[in-house]
Design a protein around this nucleic acid. Structure first.
Length: 158
DNA sequence: GCCAACGTTGGC
DNA sequence: GCCAACGTTGGC
């Protein structure tokens, strides 16, 4: 018995890891999230959940592809790796602070949906939508089924 | 528990 | 590169 499919948006800087990179590797552990809210969302994820792959800090920020959650959350191994920039000395194997999921490539969008187009849909998306909420920097955030539909509806209008 | 300092995110 | 906004840390 599985619960209804849920949806998320995950940000990545394409210079670091892009939708092209995800296509190349197929599945990727989403390492390096060091924000408690984002971590908590990943802990709620289930296999098959839909993911909007968002490119941030780039010339045209926006949604560039679709992915899906490939496994339940587990401890982010980089938190234990002294050589990693994500190493966290406060974390222990017994009580890991940071979790992640693996993300699997689904497809590129026919045309990316840029942030400025997304902003024009604030009335239907809702002002509380974290992606367009003023000052929000959350890198992993929930998307409702209605928002998912609206955002993908923009794919061919971009 | 407050809050200043600091580091980071991410649009522009 | 700038900077506004935010989250976290740590002194008190």
């Amino acid at each position: 018995m599985s619960s209804p499919k849920r949806y998320w948006l995950m940000k990545s800087e394409p210079s670091d890891f892009s939708i092209d990179d995800l296509q190349r590797v197929g599945t990727e552990p989403w390492t390096g999230v060091r924000n408690f809210q984002a971590r908590n969302f990943m802990r709620q994820m289930q296999v098959g959940d839909g993911v909007l792959f968002y490119h941030s800090s780039t010339q045209v920020p926006g949604i560039y592809g679709l992915a899906e959650v490939a496994c339940a959350s587990y401890p982010d191994p980089t938190q234990f790796d002294r050589k990693s920039k994500y190493f966290d000395e406060k974390s222990t194997r017994e009580e890991p602070r940071w979790s992640l999921v693996d993300v699997r490539y689904v497809r590129h969008l026919a045309k990316p949906v840029p942030l400025d187009l997304i902003r024009t849909q604030v009335d239907s998306l809702g002002e509380e939508f974290a992606l367009i909420r003023r000052g929000s920097r959350l890198s992993v955030l929930p998307v409702t089924a209605a928002q998912w539909k609206i955002l993908l509806g923009l794919e061919h209008k971009a």
